[in-house]
C-alpha cells in the first residue's frame, strides 16, 4: 500500500484524472501523431511505412513530453500551484516523477497506437522483440524532452511557455526529419538535422526496427549530452523559482 500513498503515484493519479476528466486537453497529444501517421505514413507517402513508424512515434512522444510536462508545469506555475507545493511538505521530486511517469504512459499509448496502424494497415512486420524495443526506446526517449519541457516551463513566463513550446515543437520535429525523412532534405538541412535530439531518438528507433543501420552509440551519446544540458537548464530554472517570481 506504500506505493499508493507515495507522492509520485499521487501525481501520476492526478495526471490520469486530468486525462479522464478533461479529455479535450490531453487527447490531442495522443491523437495527433496517430492521425498524422495514418495520413502521411500510410496514405500519402507509400512504401515508407516502417521508416515513418519510427519517426512519427518519435514525433508523438516528443509532443507528450513537451506538453504533458512542459506546458502543464508552466500553467500550474501560473496558477500558483507550484508555489503552494513548494510551501507544503509535499516532496517536489514526487511531482517530477509523477509527471514523467504520465508522459511515459502517454508515450506507451502513442507508440502502440501507431504500431497497430503500421502493423495492420502498413504491412510492417517486426519481431516481437523489435516492437517491444521500439516502445521501450521511445518511452525512455521521453526523458530528454521531459527535461526540455520542464526547463522551458520553469524558465519562461507562464504565459509565454505554451506558445514557445509550440513554436519549438513543430519546427524541431520537421527539421529532425520526423515528418519527411531527413535523407530527402537539401544537404545543409541534412547536416542541421544531425545536431537535433529528435533526429537521434528517431535514429535509435530506425536502428532497432532495422529500417536503417547507423552508429547507435553516437546517437545515445548525443541524447545523453542533451539530457545533461536540459537537466542543467531545469536546475537553473528551479533555482530561479523562488517566492518572488511565479
Amino acid at each position: 500500500m506504500n506505493t499508493l500513498t507515495s507522492p509520485g503515484w499521487q501525481f501520476l493519479k492526478c495526471q490520469w484524472l486530468n486525462l479522464v476528466r478533461q479529455p479535450a486537453y490531453t487527447l490531442p497529444t495522443l491523437l495527433f501523431p496517430v492521425i498524422f501517421y495514418a495520413f502521411f505514413g500510410l496514405l500519402m507517402i507509400p512504401g515508407l511505412s516502417l521508416w515513418l513508424l519510427c519517426t512519427y512515434s518519435t514525433f508523438g512522444i516528443m509532443g507528450a513530453a513537451l506538453f504533458s510536462f512542459g506546458v502543464s508545469i508552466a500553467v500550474e506555475r501560473g496558477q500558483g500551484w507550484l508555489l503552494l507545493l513548494r510551501a507544503s511538505p509535499a516532496p517536489i521530486a514526487g511531482l517530477v516523477i509523477g509527471k514523467a511517469a504520465a508522459a511515459m504512459l502517454f508515450a506507451l499509448v502513442i507508440v502502440v497506437s501507431i504500431s497497430v496502424l503500421a502493423g495492420w494497415f502498413g504491412g510492417v512486420r517486426l519481431e516481437t522483440s523489435q516492437w517491444a524495443g521500439l516502445v521501450m526506446v521511445q518511452m525512455i526517449g521521453t526523458i530528454p524532452f521531459c527535461l526540455l519541457g520542464l526547463s522551458l516551463g520553469l524558465l519562461l513566463s507562464p504565459n509565454a511557455a505554451p506558445a514557445v513550446i509550440n513554436i519549438i515543437y513543430l519546427p524541431l520535429a520537421f527539421l529532425s526529419g520526423l515528418w519527411v525523412p531527413a535523407t530527402q532534405f537539401p544537404p545543409f538541412l541534412q547536416s542541421l538535422a544531425t545536431w537535433l535530439p529528435p533526429y537521434h531518438l528517431a535514429e535509435l528507433a530506425l536502428n532497432i526496427t532495422g529500417a536503417k543501420t547507423s552508429d547507435w552509440m553516437v546517437s545515445v551519446l548525443i541524447l545523453v549530452i542533451y539530457t545533461i544540458i536540459f537537466a542543467a537548464l531545469t536546475a537553473l530554472g528551479w533555482k530561479r523559482l523562488d517566492g518572488s517570481r511565479s
Binding site: L42, P46, G47, S49, L50, S115, V116, G119, W120, F121, G122, G123, V124, R125, L126, E127, T128, W131
Partner: peptide
C-alpha cells in the same frame, strides 16, 4: 503485433505498401 512470420490477420495483403 504482426511479426515477419505472420501470414494472416493482415487485412491488407493487397495493400501496396507492404505485407505483400
Amino acid at each position: 503485433l504482426p511479426t515477419p512470420g505472420s501470414q494472416s490477420g493482415a487485412p491488407s495483403s493487397e495493400n501496396q505498401s507492404g505485407g505483400e
